[in-house]
Amino acid sequence: MYLSTGDAQGSYQVLDCIFAFDTCKEGLLRGSAPGKAFEGVKNQLQNKAKQLGADAVINCHFEYHSGLSEGLNPKKIVEVFAYGTAVILGEKK
């Protein structure tokens, strides 16, 4: 699945805008890992695109937020949001 923060080369057919969200919480012996949340959110975008029958997600935007979880023992938490446009490559715009 082609995933890009930019436009696609050539023509394509737009199917829909899609959104995904993932988090990663700090563990007992490890720090929070934005990389894991980023991979998770990319995977979700790909799955949503596959469900629509798309073969690429273009113009993806990623945003993140870090904070503390609720509870008596707050842990650092990283949230990653993403949205993009699911398209079929090689078809008319």
């Binding site: 998770g40 995977n43 979700q44 799955n47």
Partner: peptide, 19 residues
């Protein structure tokens, strides 16, 4: 929490293609 389940046959035809 975030899975994808599919067969080649879509939900509309009786199969499955769902998050």
């Amino acid at each position: 929490d975030h899975g994808y389940v599919s067969t080649d046959i879509s939900s509309y035809e009786g199969g499955i293609n769902e998050l």
